[in-house]
């Protein structure tokens, strides 16, 4: 049932296919009845959702509704209080699964966290070499491939403080892709950037999406949601308010659902 992880798979394909191996009946990520609280604040309430390895899903919702918490629970950075999350059949509740779950779901954060003691190339190759025991020369070759994907092959030797915020985020995306994730979890990765850098990063994401990289992203960039998303999930106060296709969301749902209309108005869309 579990998928064998190999280190020398062909990275020239950006899609690390899982269909056929996990069986059609099982979604890649299954969030089952998850409740999560911080102290007395319940952030997720009996939350259910499934993600298959397909397309771009955008998570929308007002601030503080638990979008980040959901992503962090999926890759085990937060523990769930009740319910369970299965990633390719592996429960996040078992500590021994976390490594495979995190390799399956690459994550990029709002505040960039490149490793400041390493240059760009080393940021990309460190984990494949140390964790997946990939040959260093091979890892570097692969890194160049992904640096080209994010348009930064000239920055291989740069240190993090020699890069703009947008460049740092693109490097962080490339670093996540180095591990052959089955999906990328992106948590407002452009919200700390100025508009110009934001569009740089979003363009990279759109390119990756067009090549079939599966993404689960929290973003307030509606243009990106319109262009790239296939599915939109709207969360409010820890529960699911809508789970629809992008077309439906921007046509019928926004007219019919008052809260969503309000939210879209509020963010100026």
């Amino acid at each position: 049932m579990y998928i064998q992880r190999t280190t020398n798979d062909n990275y020239e394909s950006l899609i690390h296919d899982i269909t056929g191996k996990v069986g059609k009946e099982m979604a890649m990520i299954e969030v089952k009845n998850v409740t999560k609280s911080f102290g007395t604040l319940t952030v997720l309430k009996n939350f259910n959702v499934e993600f298959n390895q397909e397309g771009v899903t955008v998570l929308l919702g007002p601030s503080g509704t638990g979008k980040s918490t959901l992503l962090r629970c999926i890759n085990g950075l937060e523990t769930v209080d009740e319910g369970d999350i299965l990633v390719n059949g592996r429960s996040v509740k078992e500590k021994k699964n976390l490594r495979d779950i995190r390799l399956d779901c690459g994550m990029v954060f709002q505040r960039t966290v490149l490793f400041p003691h390493l240059n760009v190339m080393q940021n990309l190759t460190m984990s494949p070499v140390k964790l997946l025991k990939m040959d260093k020369a091979k890892a570097e070759e692969k890194a160049i491939y992904y640096l080209k994907k994010v348009g930064l092959e000239s920055k291989a030797k740069a240190l993090h403080n020699e890069l703009s915020g947008g460049e740092q985020q693109r490097i962080a995306i490339a670093r996540a892709l180095m591990m052959n994730p089955k999906a990328l979890l992106l948590d407002e990765i452009t919200s700390a950037l100025d508009p110009e850098m934001t569009s740089e990063v979003l363009k990279i994401l759109e390119n990756l999406a067009a090549e079939g990289v599966c993404m689960l992203c929290v973003t307030h960039e509606m243009q990106f949601a319109k262009h790239a998303a296939s599915r939109i999930i709207f969360m409010d106060k820890g529960s699911m308010e809508a789970d629809v296709t992008a077309e439906e969301f921007f046509s019928t749902v926004r007219k019919e659902n008052e809260r969503i209309a309000k939210f879209l108005n509020f963010i100026g869309e």
Binding site: G76, L103, V113, P116, M126, K130, L131
Partner: peptide, 30 residues
Amino acid sequence: VPQGQWEAGLALGHSSASTFIHVIARQAFR
């Protein structure tokens, strides 16, 4: 060393020990 460095290491699939050795300790040492 900021908490974000731990999370970045863990999110890439490193164990706590591996994150400590390859990410945290090296920065802390400097």
